[in-house]
Simulated scan of single mutants.
Amino acid sequence: MKDVFIVGSKGIPAQYGGYETFVDNLVTRQVSKGIKYHVACMTFDKQPKHYDYNGADCQEITVPNVGGAKAIIYDLKALNWALEQIKKNNLRNGIVYILACRIGPFIHSYIPKFHKYGFQVWVNPDGHEWLRAKWSMPVRKYWKVSEGGMVKNADLLICDSKNIEKYIHESYSKYNPNTTFIAYGADVLSSTLTADDAKVQEWYEKHQVTPNNYFLIVGRFVPENNYETMIREFMASDVKKDLVIITNVERNKFYEDLKEKTHFDTDKRIKFVGTVYDKDLLKYIRENAYGYIHGHSVGGTNPSLLEALADTKLNLLYGVGFNKEVGEDGALYWSKTPGFLKDLLEKADKLTPKQIDNLGKKAKQRVIDEYSWKKIVDEYETKFLEN
């Protein structure tokens, strides 16, 4: 039996983001009987629970709710839990898989402890956390140093983007990092909802949106997702359709600054509609968008991009390597050059149904061929068992 400890996701069953969805799929779609998953799950509860989830051994790790630092504390406490379990149950020759690069300054002290029991330490380096604008400069410096520490000490780095793998080798060649590429996954399934469903009708009526008459943006409301460019360019266009923005928007400084810079509140086409937690409803909204605009500029294979390619026929992606690698010829690409996205939106608005269908087929095929959860889980299981 190969014991695999997974550290760094908030927990399963998934109610959060990309890492949580990944771990959930890894566990629920498990094929090999030769792997036993042990999953750390974050909690603020003083009485952490231990439970089974689809055969995975799940342990809640209690952390103090102290802002960004809680993730570092969580990872370290989760590694201590993994070490205790290995010692207590006399486990040998397994894998500790750490998601993200938060504990670089501390990881070197853990490596020999795990190696003592034949356990390798693997890391998923995620995207460029140190480039995210939400962090202050000292925190960004910490993330960069931490990334270097993880790359230097890991036995293996599993990159979910070929561009991230390339970046790791170019930036940390002095460490001669051992890497491999296994992508993130997505499902190509249609929404079970129809236009007659009450929740569908309620959502469209509430936001005064008409199916197939809106461009859509879905993503965290942060500067590196290029909201300013997308909104400014849309406002400059003569597109008559709405721009529906599904995001965790709070009336924060970024929102107020954006409003002041662009005056988007004066454009009736632009609609911030909050978040949609109902996955089937979100899928329906994607399927019935005229087009999807993706502005993510930081990170590897982005989950919301895969979902868009699987669900929406017409996708307009910010033209960075991460996005081009995923979309290939199944999408259209834009740059931040003033007027570029405006022109692309106006051209996209005039595409024929056949042209849009062709793009949609290519996009969906990309996901089926390269990013299906079945393929991703199979690649992970093969990798876990070959060591």
Rank of each mutant, 00 (worst) to 15 (best):
D242Q: 12
V121H: 00
K134C: 07
Q120A: 04
G300S: 10
N302M: 08
G104N: 04
S32Y: 10
V139S: 13
T194R: 04
M235G: 02
H38D: 01
A310P: 10
N358F: 05
S161R: 07
Q85V: 04
V377C: 10
D126T: 09
C41F: 02
D197V: 06
E346L: 10
P112I: 00
D257V: 02
I245W: 05
K116C: 01
L305W: 08
I6C: 01
V31W: 10
K33E: 14
V273M: 13
I158E: 03
E328R: 15
T194M: 02
H207M: 10
F22Q: 07
F384Y: 15
N80L: 07
K342Y: 06
A40D: 03
E328K: 15
Y214R: 09
L314M: 12
T382S: 14
F106V: 00
E386N: 12
N315G: 08
L156G: 01
G118P: 06
Q85N: 15
W122S: 03
V27L: 05
L83E: 02
L359A: 01
L305G: 06
Q59I: 09
E250Y: 10
S171I: 00
F254A: 07
C58G: 14
A100G: 05
K240A: 12
F254M: 11
P125T: 09
L351C: 08
M235N: 04
R92L: 14
E202F: 10
F254D: 03
D196L: 03
V273I: 14
K354D: 15
K361E: 13
K364R: 15
P211G: 06
N358A: 14
I164G: 00
A236T: 03
K199H: 09
D357S: 14
L341K: 11
V222Y: 07
K271H: 06
D160S: 11
H108E: 14
L79D: 01
H50G: 05
G127L: 03
H294D: 09
A236N: 08
D329G: 11
D278K: 11
K144S: 04
V273G: 09
H38P: 00
I86P: 00
D280L: 08
Y117L: 02
D155W: 00
Y214T: 09
A363I: 02
E129H: 05
T28D: 08
N288M: 03
T382L: 13
W130N: 14
G319I: 02
T301K: 05
I270C: 05
K46L: 09
S237D: 04
I231L: 12
G11I: 10
G8C: 07
D24F: 06
G319P: 02
L359G: 01
A69H: 13
P177V: 01
A363Q: 02
E202T: 15
E256S: 10
G274D: 08
I168Y: 04
V320D: 13
L332S: 07
G321Q: 12
K87F: 05
S372V: 13
H50I: 08
S136C: 04
Y333P: 04
L99S: 01
R220W: 09
